Simulated assay, not measured.
Amino acid sequence: MQHLLLKEQILYLEKQLMTYDYNELNEHLADDFFEYGSSGNIFDNNAQLDAVRDDRTVTNSIKYTVTEFNIKLLASDVVLATYRSLRHNDSKLVLRSSVWKNIQGKWQMIFHQGTPTK
């Protein structure tokens, strides 16, 4: 039961970050966060926050569908999440993985990778 609740919580957080809302990113991306994006670019916490702060990203209006969502507990305070996302505007399917760490009682993403599929 505990695992199921954690899975639901992490899925909820993943979907919140897909809104590209500045406050959500600021709260749930760890200070040392980094990402290998599906674009092939590498991003850190500052790059993600700057993009939404400066409104250079238009992804906040893009909708996603998440499927095959699973988590694996790597340590008592570290979770690996894996899933597929389908971006509605262009039907881009991406395999995704995230590492979440419970930092001072709050789950924060420390790593994310998106790998496009053919």
Results as ranks from 00 to 15, higher is better:
residue 17 L to T: 04
residue 112 H to D: 09
residue 89 N to W: 08
residue 43 F to P: 02
residue 70 N to A: 09
residue 10 I to G: 00
residue 39 S to A: 10
residue 34 F to S: 11
residue 76 S to M: 15
residue 46 N to R: 14
residue 31 D to W: 10
residue 60 N to I: 04
residue 61 S to N: 10
residue 67 T to Q: 13
residue 100 W to F: 13
residue 113 Q to P: 00
residue 59 T to A: 13
residue 60 N to T: 10
residue 44 D to P: 00
residue 14 E to A: 00
residue 80 L to E: 10
residue 21 D to C: 07
residue 36 Y to C: 14
residue 117 T to W: 10
residue 104 Q to F: 12
residue 8 E to G: 04
residue 16 Q to A: 06
residue 17 L to V: 04
residue 13 L to I: 06
residue 94 V to A: 09
residue 102 N to M: 12
residue 105 G to W: 09
residue 32 D to P: 01
residue 75 A to W: 04
residue 31 D to T: 09
residue 13 L to A: 03
residue 69 F to W: 09
residue 98 S to F: 00
residue 87 R to L: 06
residue 24 E to W: 06
residue 85 S to P: 00
residue 109 M to F: 02
residue 99 V to C: 10
residue 108 Q to C: 04
residue 87 R to W: 06
residue 88 H to C: 07
residue 33 F to V: 00
residue 91 S to Q: 15
residue 75 A to D: 12
residue 5 L to W: 14
residue 87 R to P: 04
residue 101 K to M: 08
residue 110 I to N: 01
residue 90 D to N: 15
residue 110 I to P: 00
residue 113 Q to A: 08
residue 73 L to G: 05
residue 46 N to V: 14
residue 107 W to A: 04
residue 16 Q to F: 02
residue 96 R to G: 09
residue 102 N to R: 11
residue 29 L to Y: 03
residue 102 N to T: 08
residue 23 N to D: 10
residue 28 H to Y: 15
residue 93 L to M: 14
residue 30 A to Y: 01
residue 101 K to D: 06
residue 57 T to D: 08
residue 59 T to N: 15
residue 109 M to P: 01
residue 78 V to I: 14
residue 94 V to M: 08
residue 21 D to S: 07
residue 38 S to H: 14
residue 63 K to D: 06
residue 109 M to L: 13
residue 101 K to C: 10
residue 66 V to H: 01
residue 33 F to C: 02
residue 52 V to E: 09
residue 5 L to M: 15
residue 30 A to S: 07
residue 53 R to Y: 13
residue 4 L to N: 11
residue 104 Q to Y: 15
residue 87 R to V: 06
residue 74 L to C: 08
residue 90 D to W: 04
residue 15 K to R: 11
residue 8 E to S: 13
residue 107 W to L: 03
residue 44 D to W: 01
